[in-house]
Design a protein around this nucleic acid. Structure first.
Lengths: 215, 215
DNA sequence: ACGACAAGCGGACCTGGGTCCGGTTAGATT
DNA sequence: AATCTAACCGGACCCAGGTCCGCTTGTCGT
């Protein structure tokens, strides 16, 4: 009923680098035509600008299209759907974040003992998603797709690796899912925003959770 | 920007009993006018019937309205929005499930040691949501509302209680959230449906998780 | 019975995401 | 430079969820 859609391109972001989340998805980057690439960039720029000035929730796809001086069809062809656009908007932050725990300084990056890296990972996610709250919330409006996104796969693999390094026994894959469940954007937002739980407490909760496995 | 909406009624279901999920929400049941109650019942019946014959995903609000011989406005006045209707459709199953761990036989109900009840709780949720997959998935299309629903509050309180009974130390509230994170409908569905993990394995994962806290 | 009024009703209408397809164009090939 | 074609473009169009408001009707007090 829902066709796969021609693989969404996601190449070269407005900073010149690759925008896809690397590694995990068997990297496809089918090179856009010059005009298409130009439009893609403008669309992302316009989207970012409008989001900044009135909040992403108050920006329609048509706003973006017409702000970039293109038709609506163009937007959807490029990004597939709203979620796709949001994901690409996030990809810059995502990449930055990813590299910080892949190759950044300890305790987040390599060098520290795995249990400690795991703790740092969670705390960073919590703060990171907090900092870009509306974007993450908007991008996760569609719950089903969340876990198939490269970003999630990536986190899953990373946590799995750290668990293995920490010699945790049990079903690593499921444990990784369980841990990531605690870091779910909407859950954290709920705890922080609606239940009035402090960031410190949420972070402590994460560390406790990690310790139950690595301890 | 979003008004609270006049409190959605949810009273008397088609089996004659109260349909709201009791206890948790400071019980409001503003008694419907006779015609309104009749329409409410018919709407739920029609919705259930259509859902059964073509899958809830292929039933529009208008289908339901016109199948029940009322206007669209009536449907939205009664249930607030699509999610609201879905929730009420689920409420019957939910209630049944709730009473099974509130007052049913052990190990799910009272009588068994808390750790064991907790294990049984998770396994039951997993199977229960599996059995009503499309409904639960449809009802959770809006991720933000999930955790404010009476059903979630209820599970949260129940798990919290069992954790306390089991003398688990730490931040009980957060631990309860973490545990429920593992039982999240969409996560479980993803594991089962897309990642090809067996129900047994998912259940074992739950038991392991519980043991990390109660063990 | 009857009158008043809150509650309910319906369906036209609005909005915004997503699709379609005839016309256009980048850019590779010769 | 001429040509060919796959990719691209635009914006009219469709669909479904959600809102609005003037009209109707159940209910309750007298």
């Amino acid at each position: 009923m829902i066709e796969p859609l021609p693989p969404s391109p996601m190449s070269q972001d407005n900073l010149g680098g690759r925008a896809d989340l690397a590694l995990m998805p068997s990297g496809e980057a089918p090179r856009l035509r010059a005009d298409a690439a130009r439009n893609r960039t403008r669309l992302l720029e316009v989207a970012a600008r409008l989001a900044a000035e009135r909040g992403i929730a108050n920006v329609t796809m048509e706003d973006i299209a017409c702000g970039a001086g293109v038709g609506k069809g163009t937007v959807f062809r490029r990004f597939g759907d709203r979620t796709g656009l949001l994901v690409e908007l996030l990809s810059h932050h995502e990449q930055q974040f990813q590299s910080s725990f892949l190759s950044g300084p300890p305790p987040l990056g390599p060098g520290a003992p795995p249990a400690q890296r795991l703790r740092a990972f969670g705390c960073t996610v919590i703060r990171h998603e907090r900092a870009h709250r509306d974007f993450y919330l908007a991008a996760h409006a569609e719950p089903g797709r969340r876990r198939t996104s490269p970003a999630y796969q990536f986190r899953l693999a990373h946590v799995g690796m750290l668990l293995r390094e920490a010699r945790v026994d049990g079903d690593i894959e499921l444990i990784a899912h369980a841990l990531l469940g605690y870091l779910e954007t909407v859950l954290i937002d709920d705890l922080l925003t609606h239940r009035g739980i402090s960031v410190e407490r949420v972070e402590a909760g994460w560390c406790d959770l990690v310790d139950r496995f690595t301890g």
